[in-house]
Design a protein around this nucleic acid. Structure first.
Lengths: 140, 140
DNA sequence: GTGTATGCAAACAGTTTGCACAGAC
DNA sequence: GTCTGTGCAAACTGTTTGCATACAC
C-alpha cells in the first residue's frame, strides 16, 4: 500500500492528512500483533522521533471513531488496536498474552442475531478464545 | 444463601474464612451488575466500613484464582467481576455501558472447538455483544 | 504459635487534559 | 487566515506493592 493511498483514505474519512497520522496508520496496519499505544509509539521512535505518545493516543482515538482501526478491550486492560480489515475474532494465550487472529469461518458457527431478549439491538458480535498456544504448551 | 454456606464454599476452595471475604463474596454474588472493585468497596461502606479498597482488590484476585467469581475484561478497562454461576455471555450497551447477561442457548449457536489452527488449545470461549439497550434507543 | 489476610500509604502504569505553537486546508 | 492537530508537562484513575498489625487455624 503506497503512502498516497493512505492519504486518500484519511481524506475519505474526513481527516486532515498529517505526518503523524500517516505514520501511525502505517504502524498500526503493518503491525499484525495488535499493538498497544506504547508499542506504536516505540515503533515510530526511529522514523518519526518527534511524534509524542499523547499524539499517538489522540490519533488512535480519532482513527477508532472514524472506523479506520478497531479497538480491542481484551487482556491486560491496555488499549490495543487492530488494523486488520474484515471480521475476525481473537484468541488470547492465557500464559503469554499473545493475541492471535482467528478467521471466524474456520472456528465457530456464530449466529449473529440482530436483536437479543430485552430489546437489545446488536451492533457487533465479538468472540474471544482463551487458549494456550503451542509454544507455551511445549515449554511447560 | 446463608452465611454458613458461603463459609463452607470458602473452605472448600481452600481459603481461610474471614469477615472481609464473606462480605466481599456476598457483595459480588448479590450485585448482578458486574460491579467494579470500587463499586464493591462502596457497597461495603455501611456494613463493613473498615474493609479497605486494597483488600477488595486482593480478595477479588484470590476469588478469581480460586474460580469463585469470573473476571470480565470488557469495556472501560476497569476490573469487573461476575458472581453468576454457569456459562453465559455478555452484552454491553455502547451508549451507557451497562452489561447484560445473555444466556448462551438463547442467543447464538457457538460451536466450541477444543483446538484452533496453529495448535491453540481452547480453554474457554467468550462471546460479547455490542448493543444499544432499549433505554438508550428510546431516549435518543 | 504460625502463617496468611488485612489496612494503610505510597508507588506505579496507562491514559487524559490544558495550553501554547505549528501546520493543513 | 482559520481552525484543527501536535507536543509537552502535569493531572488523573485504577491497580499494585511494602510493610506492620491482626486474625484464622
Amino acid at each position: 500500500m503506497g503512502p498516497s493511498e493512505r492519504a486518500e483514505r484519511l481524506q475519505a474519512a474526513g481527516l486532515k492528512v498529517t505526518g503523524p497520522r500517516l505514520a501511525i496508520l502505517d504502524a498500526v496496519e503493518r503491525n499484525r500483533n495488535h499493538p498497544s499505544a506504547e508499542e506504536i509509539h516505540q515503533g515510530l521512535a526511529e522514523s518519526h522521533p518527534s511524534v509524542s505518545l499523547s499524539t499517538v493516543y489522540s490519533t488512535l482515538g480519532t482513527f477508532v471513531r472514524a472506523g479506520l482501526v478497531r479497538k480491542l478491550s481484551e487482556v491486560d486492560g491496555r488499549l490495543r488496536v487492530d488494523g486488520t480489515k474484515g471480521a475476525h475474532d481473537h484468541a488470547i494465550c492465557r500464559m503469554c498474552g499473545v493475541i492471535f487472529d482467528i478467521d471466524r469461518d474456520v472456528a465457530a458457527a456464530v449466529a449473529t442475531p440482530t436483536e437479543l431478549p430485552g430489546g437489545l439491538a446488536v451492533l457487533e458480535v465479538r468472540v474471544e478464545y482463551d487458549v494456550v498456544c503451542s509454544n507455551c504448551r511445549t515449554t511447560d
